[in-house]
């Protein structure tokens, strides 16, 4: 039993170490595709190219007249409070938006504009904005991912990705 545990942990450690080369040699660890539980870790936190931008999710919907209203930001990123070093529930949606935005930006360059509509990241955002837009009647919605250069920059946010227009029923 000790030997079995030793072999198991040894293999796990070696696979974990090899998987860290993924950043410089994509595909080196084919195991990751099967690793639904993320047992093979990815330890390159904030490296080699850290996120130095903030992402903003904007939505607009048609009004009763059929015209699109103004873009509005959903759940703007809150400034952190001092207690967030101990208690920080907002880090999860913030990280989720970051992950979704970076994934969608990559996917939109890799596949056609039509194909990207069935990607999971696109559908998650569409599902989220359709609910958050609080539509009273069937309407059309569109979302936009904008990117800003952080708090030191005076440049306005710029559009990173704009979705198709979708009919949403309520």
């Amino acid at each position: 039993m000790d030997v079995a545990l030793g072999v198991l942990l040894g293999v796990w450690l070696v696979v974990s170490a090899v998987a860290q080369l993924e950043v410089i040699k994509p595909g080196v660890s084919r195991v990751r595709r099967l690793d639904l539980f993320s047992l093979v870790p990815q330890y390159n936190f904030f490296a080699p190219r850290p996120g130095t931008k903030d992402f903003h999710l904007m939505v607009r919907a048609t009004t009763s007249s059929g015209e699109f209203g103004r873009w509005r930001e959903l759940s703007p990123l809150p400034h952190r409070a001092w207690w967030n070093c101990l208690w920080n529930p907002a880090r999860r949606p913030r990280k989720a938006l970051f992950d979704l935005a970076t994934t969608l930006a990559k996917e939109s360059q890799a596949v056609s504009r039509t194909a990207v509509q069935v990607s999971v990241s696109y559908l998650v955002l569409l599902n989220h904005v359709s609910t958050a837009a609080r539509l009273q009647a069937p309407a059309r919605v569109q979302f936009l991912l904008a990117v800003s250069n952080g708090t030191c920059s005076t440049e306005p946010p710029r559009a990173l990705f704009i979705s198709h227009v979708h009919e949403v029923e309520r």
Partner: peptide, 26 residues
């Protein structure tokens, strides 16, 4: 892993990555 990818990253080595990350709201 986290350290070696930063040490070999141009933007971490010249300090711009640190300033960039600290400049985000996230």
């Amino acid at each position: 892993t986290a350290g070696i990818y930063k040490v070999t990253s141009r933007t971490w080595w010249d300090g711009s990555a640190l300033t960039g990350v600290l400049g985000t709201l996230s």
